[in-house]
Design a protein around this nucleic acid. Structure first.
Lengths: 134, 134
DNA sequence: CGGTTAAATAACCTTTGGGTTAAATACGCC
DNA sequence: GGCGTATTTAACCCAAAGGTTATTTAACCG
């Protein structure tokens, strides 16, 4: 019984070896052998980790002769970030528009500048991201 | 052998029941009974899920008479987002400064405006977040 | 005190996960 | 074709995860 995609992705991220592999891949596409080097672990174990990451949509794999170069796949990262966005207001104090407005007001106060007229509160776009801060 | 904090957090998020609980808590603090209602699952099972979430730092629990109200705890969410930030450039095309600059240039080109002098690229603050978009 | 409600713990079961070693597959090269 | 390198698959092991029911703890209420 396969998990829903988001669960698979989070599960894949819940292992330090796999996160280290992703960190390595953030530096650029590379082979399984290369990925395996830093770890005191058998090659099949790495192979399994890669399968988990691939199944989770976090990496994709090409074919070049006998190598299967791995690279970061963006989609699932984006899914995770999107889900996380539902909670951003709990920890990013400048996240919601009201806060943003208040902080702008404070900033103006601090700068002792006269109030400006066409000051606008920026609207959120695309599911909780893309706001100006500070 | 306890997992590192980030692994515990991702593992906690890798279950749809637990994510649903968090989604409910995003609406506000509530009791275990209340949280359990939507699920076709025994109360001890929910209790275990809550323990996992608490251990992962995703919720905290108070005491009010015989109730233990649960609420979202921000810190671990922030940790996850911070980690995710290392990969943001892979899927948020407006994330990195060079892209931002290029897009501004394109926008200016499109507007057929003369080049402006004190146009500045905004600097990233606080680990991969807080950029202006568009 | 005794009863009722809220929640956690204990003991247990079954499935999944992460690791191993040994064998198989895929491809390039001489 | 046969060899060597890269990678996956198979078979197995043990620990951890997610669920259950039965029992226990905690707090209010009358």
């Amino acid at each position: 019984m396969p998990l829903d995609p988001l669960s698979s992705t989070f599960a894949a991220l819940a292992d330090p070896t796999r996160r280290a592999i992703l960190a390595r891949l953030a530096l650029g596409e590379t082979s399984v052998m290369e990925l395996a080097k830093p770890f005191d672990m058998s090659l099949p174990a790495i192979s399994k980790h890669l399968k988990v990451l691939e199944h989770a949509g976090l990496i994709s794999r090409g074919r070049e002769a006998q190598w299967r170069p791995c690279r970061i796949a963006p989609a699932s990262f984006k899914e995770v970030d999107g889900w996380l966005g539902n909670f951003r207001r709990f920890w990013d104090e400048s996240f919601n528009r009201l806060d943003g407005l208040l902080e702008e007001m404070k900033a103006e106060e601090a700068a002792k500048a006269p109030p400006r007229s066409n000051r606008k509160v920026r609207v959120q776009k695309e599911k909780q991201r893309g706001r100006t801060r500070g």
